[in-house]
């Protein structure tokens, strides 16, 4: 039981980073990134490939961060000409293409079998110490991510981003460089997702194309909607709630007679039902975004 709780908190912290990263893009800036899993995958595969070639995990994480930033620049520049829903589909397509590449370039990525047996950063005889080390570092990373993102939204740049979400044309006419703002934001958000990917790979000590399915992006979107779009605390709470449902429904088969081959798809169905219910009845999420209000009427 303790093992499961530690696992749940650790994995929630990793997904919390992904959710905060997506919240910066979708919640704050209004960029619908349906390819969030690609940034995650860049970090994950950079770590995996470096480990496979005998490099240190630090090198892997750094390469992941750099490549993700570059990918962020490219994706952000694509946003220059595209309306929001078109951009969403392009990012989805990019992520699918990334998955296609890692599935087929077997010489580098291990192909459909993925890369396994990746050595983690923590070595100890006691498994419990290793789990607590993981727990501590992931929660610390999440806290750092939260702090940076929260501060970011309070700066002038953060206000420009929120204006970009509400009134893109107004932002442009006020003289802000919209493309530059999007690129800058993605250069911050993409490395966060890449670090989450690296953590995931090192923690599970495996990465494969099965982890890069659109379902992963969908999980992170569910976290945002459940928690509350635009609210960083909401994103983290959403990550915990969704992981609780997702990992917890693993035990459904102990209670109900569900054939084991259906367990995976039933878990996805439960998450899908949660997202649908929130979209219909509480689209602002558990923690709605709180915006500073100016009392324009009071004068």
């Amino acid at each position: 039981m303790l093992d499961f709780v530690i696992y749940l908190v650790t994995i929630s912290a990793i997904y919390g980073m992904l959710a905060v990263s997506l919240n910066l893009q979708t919640g704050v800036t209004g960029l619908l990134n349906f390819g969030q899993v690609a940034f995650f995958g860049v970090g994950a595969y950079a770590t995996g490939i470096v480990a496979l070639n005998g490099g240190s995990w630090i090198v892997g994480v750094l390469i992941g961060v750099v490549v993700a930033s570059l990918l962020g620049i490219v994706v952000g520049r694509l946003g220059r000409t595209l309306a929001a829903d078109y951009w969403a589909i392009v990012t989805l397509a990019l992520a699918e293409c990334f998955r296609l590449i890692v599935t087929n370039e077997s010489a580098w990525t291990g192909g459909p079998q993925g890369i396994g047996g990746i050595p983690g950063p923590f070595a100890s005889d006691s498994a419990l110490i290793v789990s607590f080390a993981w727990l501590g570092s992931c929660v610390a990373l999440l806290a750092a991510t939260y702090f940076v993102s929260q501060r970011l939204t309070e700066t002038q740049f953060g206000r420009v981003l929120r204006l970009l979400r509400e009134q893109p044309l107004l932002t442009e006419s006020l003289g802000h460089n919209v493309t530059a703002a999007k690129v800058r934001l993605l250069m911050i958000a993409a490395p966060i997702a890449a670090i989450a990917g690296s953590c995931y790979t090192l923690y599970i000590s495996f990465i494969g194309p099965g982890q890069l399915l659109p379902i992963e992006t969908f999980l992170v979107f569910t976290m945002l909607i459940v928690g509350g779009m635009g609210n960083m605390r909401g994103a983290i709470v959403g990550a915990v709630v969704v992981q609780l449902i997702y990992s917890g429904s693993r035990f459904l088969k102990d209670v109900f007679p569900i054939p084991p081959e259906n367990a995976g798809s039933i878990r996805v169905l439960i998450i899908g039902a949660t997202l649908t219910a929130f979209l219909l009845w509480r689209s602002e999420g558990l923690f709605p975004e709180r915006l500073r209000k100016l009392d324009a009427d009071r004068s």
């Binding site: 969403a88 659109p214 969908f218 979107f221 569910t222 798809s265 996805v268 899908g272 649908t276």
Partner: peptide, 26 residues
């Protein structure tokens, strides 16, 4: 908003796949 509908359609898309998989096997 059309963005909300887009997220909803991603949800429905995944629910349909998972539903078929539950009912008919992979």
């Amino acid at each position: 908003s059309s963005a909300t509908a887009l997220i909803g359609s991603l949800a429905i898309s995944i629910v349909i796949t998972a539903g078929i998989q539950t009912a008919a096997g992979p």
